[in-house]
Every structure is written in C-alpha cells, then in structure tokens.
Simulated scan of single mutants.
Amino acid sequence: MRVLGIETSCDETGVALFDSQRGLLADALYSQVAMHADFGGVVPELASRDHTRRLLPLIDEVLGEAGLGRRDLDGIAYTAGPGLVGALMVGAATAHGMARALGIPVLGVHHMEGHLLAPMLEDEAPDFPFVALLVSGGHTQLVEVLGLGRYRLLGESVDDAAGEAFDKAAKMLGLDYPGGPHIARLAERGDPKRLRFPRPMTDRPGLDFSFSGLKTHTLTAIRQLEATGALDDQARADVARAFEEAVVDTLVIKCRRALDASGQTRLVVAGGVSANRRLRERLEHECAKRGARAYYPRGRFCTDNGAMIAYAGAQRLLAGERDAASMLAVPRWPLDHLTPPAA
C-alpha cells in the first residue's frame, strides 16, 4: 500500500511517501523556523499561510522523487492533531480534497503517535512492547506502549514541556528560536562545576514532569549574574550548561523509573528534544546498566516530518481505518484516548 503522509501541525510542512512493502520511498520538509525566529516563537496565522503555499509543491516534489503520480497512491494520511488548528486544517483539507478526487481512503493521524512510531522507520526498529519518552516543544510524556493504539500514560509535564523550557531559557540568554540546538551548542563551552540547577520533581515518587520552576531558577541566576556585572560570554555558557544538564538529568531519572516500574527493556525516545546529544549519551548509559536498549529515529525524523505520519497512517489504513466524509482537526487530543485498530 502506497500512502502519502502530510504533516502541518505547527511550523514545519512535511510530506512523505511510504510503501508498506518497500518502506519509505521519498520525503521532503520545509521548515518555517527562519520566518518565526523574528518573533521568538510560532505565529499561528503565519504558519497556516505558509503551509498553504508550500504543501502542494512539496507533494509534487515527493511524488517526482519516487517516480510516481497521484494516481499511484493507495491512501493519504494527515496530521489531525494535536497542533495549531489553522495549520491542521490546511493539511486536512488538502488530504481530503486529494483523496476524494482520487477515490482513495484518507485518515487523520495523531501527531504524537507519529512521533512514537518514527523509530519503526529505521533498519533496527524496536518490537512491542516498550516505554516511550515523547519529548518536544509541546509535549513531554512517558508512555507504556503495548502495541499499535495500546497506550498507557505513565507521566507527563504539568506545565511547560521540555522543548518549550529550552526555548524560554534560550530567549533569556539572548539566543535565537528554536532554543534547544542553540542551548546545546552554547553549553559545550560551559563549566559543569560552576552552577547547579534543581532537578524538578525528582525528589518525590512519580513520573510527571515540571519545568516551570527550572525556568524561574534560570531567570533568577541570570539576573544575579547581571546585577554583579558577571554575565559575560563564559557565564552565559555556564548557565546554558547548568540548564541543559538539569533537563537531561530530570528526563533520565524519570525514564529510569518508568523502565523499572513497567519492567520493559526497550526505550523509545522521540520528538525534537530526542536529538540532544547529551540526552542520548545519558540514556544509552542508563539502558546499558539495566540490560535495556534505547531506540531513536534518525536526526531528520526527530522533529516534525511527513514520514512518521505516512508510516503511522499506513498501519491504520492497512487495518481498515479511514475518515468519514468530514475532515478532522483536533487541537487537543490526548494520546491515551487512541484505540487499537479494529480486528
């Protein structure tokens, strides 16, 4: 089955073509990061307009790369949520319009299910069951995954997601959006012994996350350095290092607890923050100590992309799922509300 995947949930327009027999045939991505950087974050109306401009040319590009035409498609999957409602509607309307014209099934896919299944695109894909850490700008969740659509939420952020905290800390340090990569680069020059920031919600049982207090602590540290005239380039790097290590330690501690509590030996890490080098190194070390293994998507599939939507959509389309006549655009959609495909 050849499935076209469309991702327009936020600030990246992603398109991919997945063949259930041959695997990923082609993918393309247009990032709006440069456009939103001037505003320090995503402007929803601008994001929607840019998806409208980019989506059809990207679809043609992907089909051309695969040497196929629209009539060669067997189904279309699109991100139905969660995300920015205007951006979601661009992808949903395009997918439904194409599917109706071609007479093929169409299906709205959960954005986080796409991230969760992204490592399945790799040569060494994990088997079910596993624990998943979904960590991005909008979500930080620990999920026990027993199979497709069989998800048990173990813990989640009660305020800022980890990626959102990176963005806000970067802004405090005068760094560009998105903050994660800039914080990581600056942290490479930081002294790990100069500052130590708190590891929030690790001094009590449980698997939930909270990063708002860490954000406040970071702002206080920066203001204290400014007040004493000590906020030079090295101090900014030291703050970045302390912040990154606090986030990484918190994520690692919670992953360790989740593996122990569930008894699973496989850990999937997906979402934009999963590309962080220090996080991967720490998780690899923790998994090795437990006889467990960590799985990640390749770098370009850590952030939002069409390939993960094409793959997730293909699994459900093959099981007979499809949208009714109306399209879906669901800004808030809990992952654990999903169900397995009907037998």
Rank of each mutant, 00 (worst) to 15 (best):
A77C: 09
Y78Q: 08
T79M: 09
P82M: 13
G83I: 07
V85Q: 05
V85T: 12
L88V: 09
L88I: 04
M89N: 11
V90R: 01
G91A: 09
A92S: 15
A99H: 02
A99S: 10
R100A: 11
A101M: 11
L102Y: 13
I104E: 01
P105D: 08
L107V: 03
L107D: 07
M112S: 10
G114C: 09
H115P: 13
H115M: 15
H115S: 14
L116S: 11
L117Q: 06
A118P: 07
A118Q: 02
P119T: 06
P119H: 12
L121T: 03
A125G: 05
P126I: 10
P126E: 10
P126N: 15
D127G: 05
P129K: 15
F130K: 05
V131G: 02
V131F: 05
L133T: 04
V135L: 14
S136P: 09
S136R: 02
G137A: 08
G138T: 06
L142W: 12
L142E: 11
V143W: 02
E144S: 05
E144F: 00
E144Y: 04
V145Y: 05
L146M: 14
L148I: 12
G149Y: 03
Y151W: 08
Y151G: 03
Y151K: 13
R152W: 06
L154K: 12
V158H: 12
A161P: 02
A162D: 08
G163I: 06
A165C: 15
A165Y: 02
D167R: 13
D167Y: 15
